[in-house]
Amino acid sequence: MNGVSPAAKAAQKPAPKAGRVLRWKNAGLFAVLVLLALPPFFVDDYIQFILDLILVYVMVSVGFNIVLGYAGQLAFANAAFFGLGAYAMALCLGRFHWPFAAALVTAAGVGGGAGLLVSLPALRLRAYYLAIVTLAFGELLRWGYVHASSLTHGSAGLAVPAAGVFGLHFATDRARYWLFLVLVALTLWGSANLLRSRFGRSLAAVRDNEAAAAAIGVSPALAKIGAFSWSGSIVALGGAMYALLLGRISPESFGLSQLLLHFSIVMIGGLGSLLGSVLGAVILTAAPELLRDIPGLEEILFGVLLIAVLLFMPKGVAGVLGRFSLLRERLYLS
């Protein structure tokens, strides 16, 4: 046994408390979830609406981060996925009178399909070219919402009826909060696991060096197609939640400013960090509410925050927390 190096010894030794640590971790996560389910019992209607909105933007930015932070694709089609999800939800519920669950699945499916479509140019185009073509795609869709007025009522907007499932009715912001919380928790859990899988690692490989990834047998095409479809369906779910929350959607909600908001959330929270996206969504949804009486201040704040992130904390808020050991998350960033 003398010939065995310490490293090998460490590898042989079974991790003693792995099972117990995992159990504690799961218990902790469950406790957090239970705590997060409590606010509707003691906040007022306005705060409740903001909390719902935060959950919508958590969903959206988690989806965007997969393409932007993990797969490293500078694609700006996020507002397009968001709008498609919202319109799919509104049409399925209000026009086709489908059951709620079917509408939700359809919205996610439409978003996934759009993601697949957008991933095709991503196979050929890089960096700015991809950014511009996806930007054009989003604006094209927005034009479509305005002009397909027999279906979408054009600029006037489309009403979204309240809906329910299993006898639960999501007619109030409180009821919707629990629904959104479940959807967001499931998405975060699923995404965290998927990002740790072989597929998730292939995304990071393609982002860091596409040629090297291809050389060791990772297919950049499959990674990109997968990332865009997955991101598209999550963001579209976020859009569906947004439609439910607002009760009325109109084309101008899904333009350039919506896209820039998503972009800022992901960047300020931290590229390539799921928890960063959660934090970014909380900060950038709550702060404008405090500043909404003074025109322009919200945009100035976003600008200043973005500049601060770029100059002083390149990994965003999540990176800063990680530096002080307040956040334990592998960022998989170079």
Partner: peptide
Amino acid sequence: MMTVALSYLLRGAVRF
């Protein structure tokens, strides 16, 4: 992203 930040700042300043 930096040019996006700049565009936010300019728009915010003018709106302000």
